[in-house]
Structures are given as C-alpha cells and as structure tokens.
Simulated scan of single mutants.
Amino acid sequence: MRFGKIEYINLLPFDVFIKAYPATSGFKKFLQLKKSYPARLNKDFLFQRIDAGFISSIAGYSSARKHKATNSAIIAKGSVWSVMVIPAPQAQDYQSATSNALCKVLGLQGEVLIGDRALAYRYLGGAHTDMGEVWYAKTHLPFVFGRFCFNTHRDFYQKISTHFNQKPIKIPHYILMQYAQKTSISKQYILEYLKHIYYKMGPKEKLGLQRFYHALLLKKIKKPARF
C-alpha cells in the first residue's frame, strides 16, 4: 500500500495522526519516502505510482466520480492564508494545479503562490489576495483544495479517513518547533493558520467542490490526465 504525502504545514494534523495509526511497517516506510508537492503527487496518482493521498481537487475529479474518494479533505471556509495571488506579473505556481485553476475561475491577476512559501510570505506581511476568501465571498461555500483519494485498497483507506475525521488532533510541541525552525514561521502563527483549515467533508463542502468543477467546465479549464 503506497500513500503519497504532501509535505506542507496544512497536513500536520494528518501527519501526526498517521504516525500513530496501526499500519504495517511497509506502509509507514513508503509514507516517509514518497513526499512531495501537490502537482507532483497528482502525476504519481494518475499514473498509479501511488495508491492514495491527498490529491489536488482538480486531479481528484475522476476519483470523485468513481466513488474513489473519502470524506477527508483539505478545506477552508473563507480565508486560508496559504493560497494567494501576489502583485507580480501573471504566473502560475508549479506546485498546485488546483490553485492555478482557481485563480482563473476567480478572474484574478498576479502570481499564484501556495503552501508553506505562501504562508511565510503572509507572515512577513507581503501584499496578497487570499483566494479562499475571494471564493467564499462569491459562493458562500467552503473550498476544497485537496481530497483524500485512492486507486486501490478501498476499505483500508476509507477506514483511515473515518478514524482521522473522528476527533481533532493535537500536534506535539516538538513537531511544531521543528516546522517553525524549518519555515522561519513562529509556532503561534502556525497554530493560528491551522485554525483556518479543517478536514471533514460534509454536504456544503461537496457542493462547493461541485461548484468548482462546474466552473472549470464553463471556463474550459483542462484537468490533469495521464494522456
């Protein structure tokens, strides 16, 4: 069983959860080996080099249609702090297909910046437009940035999702300090950031995702594919 891992602060709660989850040593070892940014994991997932992972919403479209997606996701209801457009010449972020597409859907101009780099930029006071905030202002719906999808081992991954969604995860101090040192972002700021993100899909989240997919269709924005 091969799970691909996004190496961003927004999945710290899941990282803490999965380290303690009773799984085989092979699963845990692969988890540490296959770490990357969302767009790279999209390709690995579509080419079935990994069985599952938090896949960018735009790349998880087929999985959702085939009922190969769990009810765990990376979600924001309003401001998200780590998905933004900054005042610079128009440019995409190579790390995220979903955020690049969302920028087009929202009709925003500038450079797309996501993940820990975006959070660090905001932490230092950089001017920006928060795409989660703009989406919510236009739709009054949460935005699903990535969803826990799978190619195989349905029961195993659905069980992980169910357990993950059951209760909030407390992140140990030492892990927070590791990320604070790694990103030069304070521990308190990281904790405040994580308050803007949640992980359990419900009816409104699913409706928001469908609204995004409909917007992609209207604007003829292509989804990642194998061919």
Rank of each mutant, 00 (worst) to 15 (best):
M1H: 09
R2Y: 11
K5C: 14
E7P: 03
Y8P: 07
P13I: 12
F14E: 04
V16C: 13
V16K: 13
K19A: 08
P22D: 04
S25H: 04
S25W: 01
P38T: 07
A39R: 02
R40V: 14
L41V: 04
L41I: 06
F45C: 00
A52V: 03
S56K: 02
A59P: 01
S62L: 12
S63I: 00
A64Q: 07
A64H: 07
K66I: 02
H67M: 10
H67D: 08
N71G: 12
I74Y: 11
A76C: 02
K77A: 11
K77R: 15
S82Y: 08
I86Y: 07
I86N: 09
P87S: 07
Q90W: 03
S96V: 06
A97F: 13
T98F: 11
A101P: 00
L102R: 09
C103L: 08
L106D: 10
G107P: 03
E111I: 09
G132Y: 01
K138S: 01
F148I: 11
H153Y: 06
D155S: 05
F164D: 01
F164K: 00
N165M: 01
N165F: 00
N165C: 04
Q166K: 10
H173K: 05
Y174T: 14
L176N: 01
M177F: 04
A180V: 13
I185Q: 12
K187C: 06
Y189H: 14
E192D: 15
K195L: 14
Y198S: 11
Y199W: 03
M201F: 10
K204L: 15
G208C: 07
G208D: 05
Q210R: 13
R211N: 11
F212C: 09
H214P: 03
L217P: 10
R226P: 04
F227S: 15
